[in-house]
Design a protein around this nucleic acid. Structure first.
Length: 288
DNA sequence: CTTGGGTCCTGTGCGC
DNA sequence: TGCGCACAGGACCCAA
């Protein structure tokens, strides 16, 4: 669900209540998400100070003082809900009671030093959590194969050209492949291809170098604007308290089937096709 | 190796 | 109001 900008927004929302704070209590309310939770997860989290909250692709990484890192993936419907009781209502030593009772699909609960409760809620349970030694977290099975960060300086047109040469996969599928570039999902792939004027069915190896330059610029711009906007807020993706100022991003093509293309001077209409089981939105007139 | 399809899970919205 | 179906932001795993 959440793609890179949403995950980054969640990270930024969690940082003030997590970074530098101790996890006073942790609870796993079921043994698994997409996969089994790591053995004794609650015990391994309890008492740890979160020394840093980082992001890699769509993963949030919480470095812990004991040398492990908590890896969090939100899957399609995962949310991190923050509940911070009003200071005047919080009786000393009794802040646990200031939080609402867990609801359906609240799977992991962290009570932080400072009084905030962080609840991982995930209806579809495609999300995941694991613990790995901080020093080797990049080598973790979930992270090892990830391609470059799209906002990092190793992601550029020559890199794309080299990786896409000879590939007969549609551009849509190529950009969704996290091994090529990591962090894009269905929405931002559609939006980026629209900005770059590239059709989602174009074969990856057939895009000229100058259009790859345009694509890299488009991807960066789309992601940065979405992060700026505080992540896009759709159905499943809402911060409980709404304090973070989530913004209803207005997409150029995603979810706009049948509506006019927003490219200047284009008279096209946004179409929807299905590629590998996912909806692709694009303008057949200006994306070629 | 590359590519396409099925699959996991629950919820929502729509047409009948 | 109920029912069945399509669809939802991800990504692993396997078969051809």
């Amino acid at each position: 669900m959440p793609e890179l900008p949403e995950v980054e927004t969640v990270r930024r929302g969690l940082a003030p209540v997590m970074e530098g704070r101790r996890i006073l209590a942790a609870e796993a309310r079921r043994p698994d998400l997409r996969w089994p939770l790591p053995p004794r997860m609650a015990e391994r989290l309890t008492g740890q100070v979160v020394t840093a909250l980082r992001r890699r692709s769509k993963y949030i990484l919480a470095d812990l003082s004991g040398g492990e890192t908590l890896i969090i993936h939100l899957g399609m419907s995962g949310r991190m809900l923050i509940s911070a009781p009003k200071a005047e209502r919080a009786a000393p030593g009794a802040f646990h009671h200031e939080h609402p009772a867990p609801e359906k699909h609240d799977h992991v609960v962290l009570d932080m030093e400072g009084g905030a409760r962080i609840t991982f809620n995930d209806a579809r349970r495609f999300g995941a959590m694991d613990l790995a030694p901080t020093a080797e977290v990049e080598a973790h099975k979930l992270l090892a194969g990830l391609g470059p960060e799209p906002l990092g300086n190793t992601f550029d047109a020559p890199y794309l050209a080299a990786r896409l040469a000879g590939r007969r996969m549609p551009m849509k599928a190529a950009l969704l492949d996290q091994r090529l570039v990591s962090g894009l999902g269905n929405i931002y792939v559609c939006e980026s291809l629209w900005r770059a004027g590239i059709g989602p069915e174009r074969l990856a190896g057939s895009v000229a170098p100058d259009r790859l330059e345009r694509l890299v610029a488009a991807i960066r711009a789309v992601l940065l604007e979405a992060i700026d906007a505080g992540g896009s807020s759709l159905r499943d993706y809402r911060q409980a308290d709404g304090d973070l100022g989530y913004f209803q991003h207005s997409f150029a093509v995603y979810g706009r089937e049948g509506q006019p293309c927003r490219t200047a001077g284009c008279n096209g209409t946004v179409s929807r096709i299905v590629q590998s089981g996912r909806s692709s939105f694009f303008c057949p007139a200006c994306q070629v």
